[in-house]
Computed example of a mutant assay.
Amino acid sequence: MESWLQEAVEACALKDCHASVHDLLDCFCGQFSVVPVAIPKVTQQAAQDWLSFRRPGQWFTTEPHSHHGLMAWWRGHGILFYNKQTKAPEQRFTVVHEVAHFVLEEWVPRRRALSVFGPEILPVLDGERAPSPEEALTLFFEQVPLNLSMDLMARDESGGYASRDIVLAEHRADRVALELLAPVEQVLPLVKQLSREAAINSLRFQFHLPMEKATEYVDGLRRRLRVSSFSIAEFLGVEEG
């Protein structure tokens, strides 16, 4: 497991991958400063309206896109919006995916920066001032991202992700969510032993993953297994049976 993935998974400290939506929220809200908000339709405008009523300001670009969930954060605190009308598998994955964004994009960088600089770095993390050249160099070498205000909601004209950085952020949040809800050490034997369709169904019913994510997970592991098998066979100079 990559170090960034292991760090995020350990931070989330989820003990039961089969937990209900309610139990997931209890776990994450106890672990982090996150407030869950269930609304019937999740859009930037709906989240903007909810937030600006309580704390005036422009939190999101109000593009007319619907989402399964949104996460807003400010100074180490998060607000998790999720659609209370979707089915349980979608709700579960959405909650964990959005919490993963908070952990990866806000919680881990803040903790790492504070461990290096102490509280004097807070104005930088909170967007009140730019880092000094010395701070910027140290943050770079400590692998603390400086794009803490990246707009993960930005989309292009066709509705796709607006930048490669957003694509990478979404992929990383998915990786964390999958590892928490369906740990690879439990899923890999199923992928090895079962047909593609049977493995997908097992992830849907045993681990309660949405169909789309179960399919992506199985296909991704099958590709990695083929590459691994080919590399070993090539190294040994033998043909696969």
Score class of each variant (00 low, 15 high):
residue 81 F to E: 01
residue 83 N to G: 06
residue 61 T to N: 12
residue 79 I to K: 12
residue 86 T to E: 11
residue 85 Q to L: 02
residue 77 H to T: 03
residue 82 Y to E: 05
residue 68 H to E: 14
residue 96 V to M: 03
residue 90 E to D: 15
residue 74 W to I: 03
residue 60 F to K: 03
residue 92 R to K: 13
residue 59 W to Y: 15
residue 59 W to H: 14
residue 68 H to M: 11
residue 79 I to F: 10
residue 101 H to Q: 09
residue 67 H to N: 13
residue 104 L to Y: 04
residue 62 T to A: 07
residue 96 V to A: 06
residue 72 A to K: 07
residue 105 E to P: 05
residue 64 P to D: 09
residue 61 T to W: 10
residue 88 A to M: 10
residue 69 G to K: 00
residue 81 F to T: 01
residue 65 H to F: 10
residue 102 F to Q: 04
residue 93 F to I: 10
residue 71 M to R: 04
residue 95 V to Q: 07
residue 84 K to S: 05
residue 93 F to G: 07
residue 90 E to P: 12
residue 101 H to D: 11
residue 66 S to V: 00
residue 73 W to C: 02
residue 85 Q to I: 00
residue 87 K to V: 15
residue 103 V to A: 02
residue 79 I to L: 08
residue 98 E to D: 09
residue 83 N to R: 13
residue 59 W to T: 04
residue 73 W to S: 02
residue 78 G to R: 02
residue 97 H to C: 08
residue 75 R to Q: 13
residue 84 K to Q: 06
residue 79 I to Y: 13
residue 62 T to F: 01
residue 89 P to E: 12
residue 79 I to N: 14
residue 93 F to K: 05
residue 92 R to S: 08
residue 75 R to P: 08
residue 94 T to D: 13
residue 86 T to Y: 11
residue 81 F to A: 00
residue 61 T to M: 04
residue 73 W to F: 12
residue 73 W to Q: 08
residue 76 G to K: 03
residue 99 V to N: 01
residue 90 E to M: 13
residue 79 I to A: 13
residue 61 T to Q: 08
residue 61 T to A: 13
residue 100 A to W: 02
residue 62 T to Y: 01
residue 71 M to L: 14
residue 63 E to C: 15
residue 100 A to K: 01
residue 83 N to S: 07
residue 106 E to G: 02
residue 70 L to P: 11
residue 84 K to L: 06
residue 76 G to C: 02
residue 106 E to D: 13
residue 104 L to P: 01
residue 73 W to L: 00
residue 95 V to N: 14
residue 85 Q to H: 13
residue 81 F to S: 01
residue 102 F to P: 01
residue 96 V to F: 03
residue 59 W to G: 06
residue 93 F to S: 06
